[in-house]
Design a protein around this nucleic acid. Structure first.
Lengths: 227, 227
DNA sequence: CTCTTGCGTTATAGCTTCTAACTAGAGCAA
DNA sequence: TTGCTCTAGTTAGAAGCTATAACGCAAGAG
């Protein structure tokens, strides 16, 4: 708590900002990204519309912060799950991590969609946000490194995808991981995202399929997949 | 061409409607769903805003038609690919079908996201749209049925997911397919959606990963996956 | 204790969706 | 061909949005 409360003014400012964001998330949940309105947020807070422009440069900046927050939240949840399950069996850890991710998404679909749904037009991911995304991936890789068979490190086959992933790994300080683990990490991410987003967007409903069952089946397949 | 040209008026009406939709898709591509404006579409067409309300009950109806059209387009593309590759090896057919899907999405990401991105608030999938979605799935299943080993039909194991899928299969007149094929169909759909949507939304860019390579890797895994 | 700085105000421009009321003209029917 | 109907377009306007400008007040900074 060393950087907070720099001054009463700063404190107050931060408080108003976060209340505005809280209400924005409510509106997001109620009527999607398009339903977020600075004007009506201000009204909810008992101030006039233009007053909010002292706190946010505009609607886009508010949106961007919501995205930023969501990225960090999700990364915290996933990394927390992985951290909390050290000492358990690797397959169990992967299952738990996956479940954490899905639960996070199901609990707040609108926020998940803010990250992985239709990109909001004026938004370009800032460095820091990318960092949070990579933190999530790092957690996934943590578990996978443990799940992978030991002899994997000696396997030399390097495809083009492997090289791209290796370059990313270097930049992220995960250069020590075998290519196959990185590849599997990408597969985990994209498959989990596939099931979760289909479920959240309601595409499974009309088929009468329970999202959780499909999800479990996909996670099982990931664990069973040969290296 | 028996139902078209019922009357000059009807013809003209249909023509204006489709021009409006054409412009709407342009706007969609340029600035996302939020950028679609009846007013500015009208302006583009050389008429005033309210005039368009003779053709569409409101913005939501226009949006809904764009979604409807996109569903049918995608279904046509996928079904067409599957139809066109009869006589080829099943694995090749699957690969081609998958590529068709990805190409369709890459060629018009905004339209893909209209279907599989953040759901538009006021929109509830009408029966007919669901039909198009199921047509896509039917095409996938067509290929998979051929790819599956013959002895599969004799395998009795029926999970809860299998039962849900079987019920859907009955309703769709695909009751003859083995449960494992239906399950695999769901996996194909969700995995393809996973990679494609990550790529389209630009999540692979910051990692330096080429979407096509990841895509191929996932398709290969699907083909190699044991039954 | 003064003075700066920041928060909130109102007013306003320009955009949006969408309704209401009206006009002109195109197509249909006798 | 004549006459009627109905449709597509018009303008006007309400209500809402983002965002900027100009102004006052009050609280923290020094």
């Amino acid at each position: 708590m060393s950087e907070q409360a720099r001054s009463p003014r700063e404190r107050y400012r931060e408080q108003t900002r976060s209340e505005a964001k809280r209400i924005a998330v409510e509106q997001l949940a109620a009527s999607g990204p398009a339903g977020i309105s600075l004007n009506s947020i201000a009204r909810s807070m008992g101030i006039t519309g233009p007053a909010l422009y002292r706190y946010f440069a505009g609607r886009d900046e508010l949106l961007t912060e919501l995205i930023r927050d969501a990225y960090h939240d999700l990364a915290d949840a996933v990394a927390g799950s992985v951290q909390g399950s050290v000492r358990r069996a690797p397959a169990t850890r992967l299952r738990e991590m996956a479940t954490t991710m899905r639960d996070w998404a199901l609990a707040q679909p609108h926020r998940y969609l803010l990250l992985f749904g239709t990109p909001v037009p004026g938004y370009a991911a800032p460095e820091e946000t990318i960092g949070a995304a990579h933190r999530t991936m790092a957690a996934i890789l943590d578990v996978l490194a443990e799940l992978a068979p030991p002899e994997l490190a000696t396997r030399p086959r390097r495809s083009a995808l492997d090289r791209q992933l290796a370059a990313w790994g270097e930049r992220q300080g995960a250069g020590h991981l075998p290519p196959a683990v990185l590849r599997r990490g990408l597969a985990v991410w994209s498959r989990l995202h596939g099931v979760v987003s289909l479920e959240i967007e309601g595409h499974l409903g009309p088929m009468g399929v329970d999202g959780e069952l499909l999800f479990r089946s996909e996670v099982d397949a990931l664990i069973a997949e040969p290296w």
